[in-house]
Amino acid sequence: MRIAQRSALPGFAPSFAVTLVWLSLIVLIPLAALALRPWELGVLGVWRSVTEPRVVAALRLSFGTAALAAAINVPIGLLIAWVMVRYRFYGRNLADSLIDMPLALPTAVAGISLTALFAPKGWIGALLVPLGIKVAYTPLGILVALIFVGLPFVVRTLEPIIMDLPLEAEEVAATLGARRAQIVARIVLPALLPALLAGFGAALARGVGEYGSVIFIAGNMPMISEIAPLLIVIRLEQLDYAGAAALGLVMLLASFVILLLLNLLQRRMIVHA
């Protein structure tokens, strides 16, 4: 019996079995626990547990700040991706490696480093004190951390798309007398819109669940600067497993719904383009 079509290659059954067993043990069974445990509270109990004011405030903060950080990363990421693809300059290879820094740097390291940087006595924090801006230990600090960790997602999503942009379209527009600004606004940006949306989604998804880089700089004040993942940790410390699982499940489902909507929007754009 052969389930797999094509190819006279051997080894489908054993490799498939290893993959399935490993996937089940490490990913599927644990996630099943997340899906099932909240209901110990009953449907009403789950609803109460995820609509507590402190939980709602934390969810709003996590999703709101992640969306804002992702939105800020879109123009910054576009600029960096554009320059990296279209220009050759001294130190470009180094710059290319630097873009991945937030992905390679452990989040706890990023967290304490950003805190040191933006604390009132830190290199950047000290500059902001006279302006009356407090970043560390406020929601603004969360935003800074999420901009840091989200940037590579926007840049790396955009780069291959910019690389594949047909130069002919820009050349044709120029022959027809369009100015460079017009070409960018009318031809380049519309073509990049789906990719910009995808980059926004990737950065948002990362930001919503982010923990390590945020908790040091956030100040973690309930109702004000307490992110949803931290609330999960607090509930676990109180041995409220079902409550922690309920919050985790809501976060995961909300992220998936948002990504799904962005995906649909992206497809519509590509169809209409």
Binding site: V27, T107, G209, S255
Partner: peptide, 20 residues
């Protein structure tokens, strides 16, 4: 399914083991 862990918050990745 293999890529699933990439879209799960680190805290949830720990939480699932505590639940078990």
């Amino acid at each position: 399914l293999i890529e699933l862990p990439f879209s799960v918050s680190p805290v949830i990745s720990g939480l699932v083991w505590v639940l078990l």
